[in-house]
Nucleic acid binder design. Structure first.
Length: 626
DNA sequence: TCTTATACTTAGTATCGGATCA
DNA sequence: TGATCCGATACTAAGTATAAGA
């Protein structure tokens, strides 16, 4: 045992990459000679790390007696391995991806590899397979989990137990939450868009696949009984706790910390600080790339136009991808001629560029923008004598682009522009959209909402219900915030599928509006009658008159609120706000805005978001400027 | 200089679960 | 009180960036 550990420990300190332990070991030694010790010292992420290792999904549990797989109309008892893969498919019958031909072909090919020779001989056509009973069985199981109180409670308790046992680690003396403490269970790969590998079998991760990263002097996690880790190492320059290679694309999967952790928070903070530094030099950079549009060097001009797109349109960099391995998607540097259309004149504007391509996650980017004449002419030139499938920026790579950016500002890369422009847009939009709204002090609002800001050591407030006026003003402010957030989401092209229930719920809301309108009209008529009465009878306003008047006011306010809700819903149906909020918007902008306008932070960030942005709360007063 | 490996951020969707409604 | 709705969360795919090797 001692010998074994000596072996493990000696390997652990060589900074050995995961893919090829032996080959890379010499690489590590070489790096050591070249001052690796020093490098490690400079890029330390932690001093102490202790955890229990990942949780592994339990082994497959065969189908109960009454549930069958059918082939060609007859029930067939499959071997355990083949049955497990069949259930993976059966569970997905209701999903759109399972109807795609590529998915089915890949699944069937990988499934057959798991079959016995006999099964392979029998099961030759997917269209003769019937998974309906399997599907029904799992749907019923899910339904039971969702609805039966006893099952629900049991599952919740089990999940909590797992969370407590595997979900935390000790990092530099602090107990930190782990983001994903479970290895991914086996499943059928669900690539997005037209992914050539969709439906392939993602195999079960075994302890023998997993590399553990923890402190040398910590309690080393124990592998499940009868198993061994692939390797145990102690690399404090990385932040992952465990890693393994998945079999579909041969890439690594990592067990990492939750975003609420101090380490993640610090990295997030650093990201926004780099983006803030860009503010100081962005004008200079813009002036330079504009000057470079006239450069005699093709490479320089391509770089200048690409950077202009990245800056103006918030395009992603667009790294090169291996053909046939993933869906055909592009970013700025990988744009092809077929993705660009030039219109000398369109929509009453000159020099219009139309971009139409599939970006990350195969989300379509389709935009028409007016550009400067020089950009337009350059694009014409870049497209000359090229086929539709040729690269637009053929003299440019993401590496050369980033190298250029590094020379302009330390730490500057293409994606910093996205962060910078997103955060600046939020700040400016908030300024424009909240202008003119009634303002009232933070303390009062906090008392009225009955919610103390969690991050301040506040005394217990007496809970007072917000007044109608305060509520309305708050509704308007939150709507304004969502609009600012939406402006960024649109800039970054963050889309979502229109919710399946959208039409139905919108109809309901419209119906509510109609009903409310009718109530308003009715109240108006009643009040008019009373007014007429008052005019003929004279005298002072009766109690009943005042009541009716107040009721009308209340109904009108309710109607206005419903209208706002409908507007917000409609504007939001295809836009995903969360991505920008979590990844691009410096939380200090939102916090400062909340403080300035007396909006309880809970209206903007829910619990987990507040935990994620804990680092920002004491770093932003109401005057914070990005 | 190009390619590959690695590790991290960014992303959309299915499902969960609490709030609201009938 | 059960059904429905909708925001929050879990999950994991798909990007970016860069160090190091060929």
């Amino acid at each position: 045992m001692r010998l074994l550990w000596l072996g493990v420990l000696s390997r652990r300190f060589q900074h050995v990459p995961l893919r090829d332990t032996c080959r890379q070991a010499s690489r590590g030694a070489k790096a050591n000679k070249a001052g690796w010790e020093e490098k490690v010292e400079n890029s330390v992420k932690w001093r102490q790390l202790e955890h229990k290792g990942p949780y592994f999904t339990p082994a497959y549990e065969p189908l109960p007696d009454g549930v069958h797989f059918f082939y060609d109309g007859k029930p067939v008892k499959l071997s355990v391995a083949a049955e497990e893969v069949a259930t993976l498919y059966g569970k997905m019958l209701h999903l759109e991806c399972a109807t795609k031909e590529v998915f089915q072909r890949n699944f069937f090919r990988d499934w057959r590899k798991e079959m016995t020779a006999e099964e392979r001989k029998l099961i030759t056509h997917l269209d003769k397979c019937d998974f309906v009973e399997i599907h029904k069985h799992f749907m019923e199981k899910t339904e039971a989990r969702r609805t039966l109180p006893r099952e629900k409670k049991q599952l919740k308790e089990e999940a909590e137990k797992l969370q407590q046992e595997f979900g935390y680690c000790i990092l530099d003396g602090h107990r930190e939450k782990i983001g994903n403490f479970k290895t991914e269970p086996p499943g059928l790969f669900r690539g997005r868009g037209d992914h050539p590998k969709m439906g392939m079998l993602k195999r079960r991760v075994m302890p023998e696949d997993v590399v553990i990263n923890c402190s040398r002097d910590s309690k080393i996690p124990k592998p499940p009984a009868g198993h061994q880790w692939k390797e145990v190492r102690s690399d404090n320059t990385v932040m992952w706790l465990a890693a393994w290679m998945e079999n579909i694309q041969n890439t690594f999967k990592y067990i990492i910390l939750n975003p609420s952790s101090k380490l993640k928070g610090e990295m997030d903070w650093h990201k926004y600080e780099v983006a803030r530094r860009l503010r100081g030099v962005v004008n200079k950079i813009r002036a330079q790339y504009q000057a470079d549009w006239k450069s005699p060097e093709m490479k320089k001009r391509q770089l200048a136009v690409a950077l202009y797109f990245i800056d103006k349109l918030a395009l992603r960099t667009g790294n090169e991808k291996e053909e046939g391995e993933t869906a055909d998607t592009v970013g700025c540097c990988s744009l092809r001629v077929e993705h660009v259309r030039l219109h000398g004149k369109a929509d009453g504007q000159e020099h219009v560029v139309e971009l139409d391509f599939l970006g990350k996650d195969s989300i379509r980017y389709n935009n028409r923008v007016t550009v400067e004449k020089l950009v337009f002419q350059n694009l014409q030139h870049f497209m000359e004598d090229k086929d539709p499938g040729d690269n637009l920026f053929d003299a440019l790579t993401t590496a050369s682009l980033n190298k250029h950016l590094q020379s302009l500002m330390e730490g500057l890369t293409a994606r910093v522009f996205r962060t910078y422009n997103a955060s600046v847009t939020l700040q400016e939009q908030l300024r424009v959209l909240t202008r003119g709204l009634p303002d009232y002090p933070v303390q009062k609002e906090m008392v009225e909402s009955g919610i103390a800001l969690w991050f301040l050591p506040l005394p217990q407030w007496d809970i007072v219900q917000p007044t109608q006026e305060a509520e309305d003003s708050l509704t308007s402010k939150v709507l304004a915030y969502n609009r600012a957030n939406r402006a960024v989401a649109i800039l970054c092209n963050h889309q979502r599928a229109i919710p399946k229930t959208f039409e139905k719920s919108m109809q309901k809301l419209q119906q509510k509006i109609e009903t409310k309108k009718a109530q308003v009209t009715e109240a108006q008529v009643e009040l008019e009658k009373l007014k007429a009465d008052l005019r003929t009878r004279g005298g002072s306003k009766s109690k009943s008159f005042l009541r009716k008047q107040q009721r009308l006011l209340k109904l009108e306010e309710q109607l206005a609120r419903l209208h706002k809700k409908a507007t917000d819903k409609e504007e939001n149906k295809q836009v995903a706000l969360g991505t920008a909020k979590l990844n691009y918007l410096d939380p200090r902008i939102s916090i400062a805005w909340c403080k300035r306008f007396g909006v309880p932070i809970e209206k903007i960030y829910h619990k987990t978001q507040r935990e994620r942005f804990a680092w920002a709360f004491n770093r932003a007063d109401k005057d914070f400027e990005f």
